[in-house]
Design a protein around this nucleic acid. Structure first.
Lengths: 217, 217
DNA sequence: TTGCGATGTATCGGCCCGATACATCGCTCG
DNA sequence: CGAGCGATGTATCGGGCCGATACATCGCAA
């Protein structure tokens, strides 16, 4: 997941670790706590080793784009990395629909084709609906066997699930009707792949992410 | 966190692993995905080794309380374990207020004293309020620099945070007013303000959890 | 009787987190 | 003037937790 997020940010602009973390925290606001350095740096190493990004030492030519600082290490995405990003973005594993995964995918929706957006939104909706039905069932069938606090917690959970389903429903409707939110991305990336099908109502799973090696140092 | 949850369940009744998982999944419905066996069994081992629980082989005297099965291993909490449970229950670390931690603590609220309940509720509220304010700030200050989808995500996050704060507020009010157990009806039941307790507004942190050893096998 | 789904215990690799350490820069305040 | 402090910045380590996987047994139905 982190991999996707990092690749996505680096696609917009080269950055160093600290910047990456701040940007990540800002974009994924909810649905995803601020990422830890204990995750970030090892992940960067893996990506580096896998050839998805490159390192640019502090003595390089790039003028400090922000507040100038000391020996920072700027990371830049490679062609392989862009490919990888596209693959991850369209991947359809179960982890695509949990809180963290959905948040990250959603964040990059402006760079995702409509069919994939619909599939993800519908997958997420399905997931939440299942949770909601489970909660409903439990409240109806075993409601009187639970203590008052647990009950209260479940009720709140049910409420939240219900709200999220409605939210997703609205987004799905909007997508279908073509009211695609304007792509106001700061850095519009060249939209090469244009081969998308007309208006498929979110069909089957695209090529599943085969999990790359990304192995030991 | 798992430790607390397991100890709490075993305090209600002895159980084996499979049962533990189901019970856990049911009680923590939201706020906490179903726990994995890859976590459960190692945790049980740690607890066993630390002397917080004991193992009861399949040939024991306990009659199968559920659908009878095969060589199950029934776990039982010890006196040390109960002590540990109480300590964890009242502990006041930051992890007490994140989604998972709050969910687990809340689940055992009926076995928590009112002062602690209030502290946890207010700690959680504070946490969510901070998130909410951060979101508000961002939407107000940098709202036009973000793309439409990110904006939509943040807005939904803000909504959820707002709702949770209100929920917590209600619970806190109820606690203070002495309507201790959350009333089961959707509509809050009015209660004539009796039993004027000191109504301490949830003070400082109790003994902080000192993190036991629980070490290697 | 074969096979399937629920029950049940267990391990392994790997992601990710919190704590911690270290270093530099720019600022304010005594 | 320099001492301290908060933000910036890179990095590691131990450990919690997860998903995938492997077994084994039981009850039931095709």
């Amino acid at each position: 997941m982190l991999e996707l997020a990092i690749l996505g940010l680096l696609q917009e602009a080269p950055m160093h670790g600290y910047e990456l973390r701040k940007e990540l925290a800002a974009k994924l606001g909810t649905l995803r706590a601020a990422i830890s350095y204990g995750t970030l740096y090892p992940t960067l190493k893996r990506l580096l080793l896998a050839g998805f990004i490159t390192e640019q030492g502090p003595g390089s030519d790039i003028p400090p784009p922000m507040t100038s600082k000391r020996g920072r290490i700027v990371y830049k995405i490679t062609a392989d990395g862009k490919e990888r990003f596209a693959a991850l973005l369209a991947a359809a594993g179960p982890e695509t629909y949990d809180d963290a995964g959905f948040g990250v995918h959603f964040t990059f929706f402006s760079r995702t084709d409509r069919a994939t957006r619909l599939r993800i939104l519908e997958g997420r909706r399905r997931r939440i609906e299942e949770r909601r039905e489970g909660l409903r069932e439990m409240l109806a069938r075993a409601g009187d066997r639970l203590d008052a606090y647990t009950l209260e917690l479940q009720r709140h959970g049910l409420d939240s699930a219900d709200r999220e389903v409605r939210w997703l429903e609205e987004l799905i409707t909007r997508e279908r009707s073509g009211t695609t939110p304007a792509v106001t991305a700061t850095a519009p990336v060249e939209d090469t792949e244009k081969k998308t099908s007309p208006a498929g109502p979110a069909a089957e799973a695209p090529p599943v992410k085969p999990a790359p090696h990304l192995d030991r140092p």
